[in-house]
Simulated assay, not measured.
Amino acid sequence: MNSNNTTRGGALVLAWFVLCGAACAAGPTAPKQSSTPVADALGDSSVRRSLLTNGAADEPQATVNGNVADLQQMIRDGRVKELRTTYNGSYGASLLFYPDEMTFYIALFQQKKFWRVVKTQVDSRAETIYADFAKNSAALADTEIRRTKLEAEKNFADRLIAVQQGRANRLQADLDVARTQQSQVADRQAEQQEAIRSLRAEQDAAQAQLRALQTKVQDLQRQSDVDMMPLPK
């Protein structure tokens, strides 16, 4: 394989990845393929050295012997170079190269644990296995990714529900105030109408009394006028 396919800081990236790199630790994400090793995003060299020294490559996995253990040791020794890496959620696949023996290591992983590691000196076989592992990682991450999307959709729906519930509560409060005020206004109107009827009855009674008094006054006036007339001789 052309050495131009190797990328700067590959060994450091892989050590970082094995120890649960940022892309895996961040949780499920949409499938993506890295065009450059993740080491390029790790920042300054002191950070990379710290990740390499204290990373998961120093943590033994269930497989004590075999390709997994060999690859872990080579990562610790900084003898392999990362050529390709694919991430799908918390799963992924890596193609690594050991130039001293012209050997390729193809790893399937989940978060910071290697799952399967295959080694070969055949370039085309390495690429085929890597493609299969990358495809497997996509299939394995499918439920994880769908769960992440569904959780996001549910959370979004919950936020919309909360917003609409708040709006409904405000509208209900306004409606309650309006209904209370309307009831008070109706009661006030009824009181006013009753007062008007009462005052109208009182006014009618007063008018009747006034007319009666006016008639009485007229009668008394006539009687007075008659009494004041001179007596016939």
Rank of each mutant, 00 (worst) to 15 (best):
V47Y: 15
D40V: 03
N88D: 07
A162I: 06
P31T: 01
Y98G: 01
G166Y: 05
T53K: 15
I161E: 04
R125Q: 09
R197N: 03
R222T: 14
I75K: 04
Q164R: 07
Q164I: 02
R84S: 08
R211S: 14
V163K: 15
N5R: 14
A57D: 05
Q192E: 12
I106N: 00
Q61R: 11
A186H: 10
G27T: 00
E151V: 08
Q214V: 05
E202R: 15
Q182F: 12
R211W: 03
T143N: 13
D219E: 14
F114Q: 09
M102V: 04
V18S: 01
G66D: 03
Y105I: 02
R146V: 10
D58E: 09
V177E: 06
Y91I: 07
Q111G: 07
E151F: 11
P37V: 03
S137L: 12
C20Q: 13
R200H: 07
T103N: 05
E101M: 05
A56R: 12
Q182K: 09
N54H: 09
E151H: 09
L51G: 04
Q189H: 12
L175I: 04
V118T: 10
S94P: 06
T6Y: 01
L71N: 01
R222P: 05
I196W: 06
S34C: 13
D132T: 07
K119E: 06
P99N: 04
S46C: 10
Q33P: 03
F17C: 06
G10T: 00
T215L: 11
D187H: 12
L171C: 02
V64I: 12
Q214F: 07
G10L: 00
I145N: 04
T143I: 13
Q110N: 06
T36I: 03
L52G: 02
D227I: 09
D40H: 13
E153C: 01
V38F: 15
K154D: 04
L108Q: 12
Q182H: 11
D187T: 05
Q182D: 07
N5F: 09
N2D: 06
L210G: 08
F104K: 00
N5T: 11
L199D: 14
A93Q: 02
G43C: 04
Y105P: 00
